[in-house]
Simulated scan of single mutants.
Amino acid sequence: MSDDVSYELLGFDNVLLPVGDLNEGVTFYERAGFPVAFRLDEAGIALLKVGKETPGVLLRLDDELSHRPPPWASPRVWLEVRDARAAADALAAVGVQPLDAPFPVATGWTVEIADPWGNVIGLTDYSKRPELARAARA
C-alpha cells in the first residue's frame, strides 16, 4: 500500500458500460450469455450477472450515444471463462461475432466482442495456468 494513500482497495463494485438504448443493450448481452440480475428502466440501468459474484456489468443509458464505436479508444473488460475458444464458438452460433479469432495470452486464450456502442468485453481462460483459475482458488 502506498504511503500517500489512506484507504484500501477491497475489490470491484460494478463495471459501468454506457449504451444508447437500454432494451437493445440488454438484448445484446443476454444473447451473449449475460443473465440480468435486475433492471431499473426509470433510472436507465440494468445489472448483468458475472458468475456468482455480487458485482457485475452495469449498463447505463446514455441518450447521446449512437451505434458506433466512441471516438476514443475503448477500455477492455475481461471476464474469466472455462474455455475461451468454446465461448467464441458459442457466441458465433447465436450471432454475436467476436472481434477476432481467439488469441493466446500468458494464462490461456481470450476472445473479445464489442457491443453496438463499442464497449469491448473479453472472455479469457486460464488453460495455460490452471493454478490461477477461480476453480483452483475456491
Rank of each mutant, 00 (worst) to 15 (best):
E80C: 04
L79N: 06
R129S: 12
P35K: 09
Y29Q: 04
N23P: 07
D89P: 01
K128G: 07
A92H: 01
G95Y: 04
L61K: 12
L40R: 11
L9V: 15
Y126V: 01
L91G: 00
H67P: 05
L22G: 05
L91R: 01
S6R: 15
R85F: 03
E64N: 13
V36W: 01
L79Y: 06
S66M: 13
P102K: 02
R129Y: 09
D41N: 08
S127M: 09
D62I: 05
V50L: 11
E30C: 08
A46Y: 09
A37E: 10
E42Y: 12
A114C: 01
E53W: 11
V77Q: 10
V26T: 09
T107D: 11
V26M: 09
A37H: 06
E53L: 14
P18V: 10
P116Y: 02
T124Q: 07
L99C: 02
V57Y: 06
G108Q: 02
E131R: 12
E64S: 15
T27F: 05
F28Y: 02
E30P: 11
P130G: 03
E112V: 00
P116L: 01
V77F: 10
D62V: 05
R137Q: 15
L91S: 00
G20Y: 04
L99I: 01
L10K: 14
G95D: 07
V94S: 06
L61Y: 10
K49E: 13
P98N: 00
E42F: 10
G44N: 10
S2D: 14
A88D: 02
A73V: 12
E131F: 10
E8Y: 13
F12S: 12
G44F: 13
K128P: 02
G11C: 08
L58H: 07
D115S: 05
L65P: 08
I113Q: 00
W72L: 14
L65A: 12
P71T: 11
P70L: 15
W78N: 15
H67N: 12
A43V: 12
L22M: 10
L10E: 15
N14H: 13
L48P: 03
P104V: 02
D13P: 10
V96K: 02
K128N: 10
G108L: 05
M1L: 11
V81Q: 05
Y126R: 08
A106C: 04
D4G: 08
V94D: 06
L65V: 07
F28N: 01
A114G: 01
P116G: 07
R82N: 15
D63M: 12
A135V: 13
P98C: 00
A88C: 02
A43G: 06
R134W: 10
S2E: 11
A87G: 10
A92R: 07
D100E: 15
T54L: 13
A84N: 04
T54W: 15
P102D: 02
E131I: 08
G33P: 08
S74Q: 10
E42D: 14
S6F: 15
A106E: 14
V19Y: 06
R76G: 03
A138P: 05
E8K: 14
D115K: 05
A93N: 03
W117L: 01
T54M: 14
P70K: 14
E131P: 06
N119L: 01
E42G: 05
R39D: 03
L40C: 09
S66V: 14
N23Y: 04
E30N: 11
K49V: 07
Y7D: 08
L65H: 08
V111S: 00
P18E: 13
E80D: 09
V81H: 04
P98S: 01
A93H: 03
F12D: 14
T54I: 15
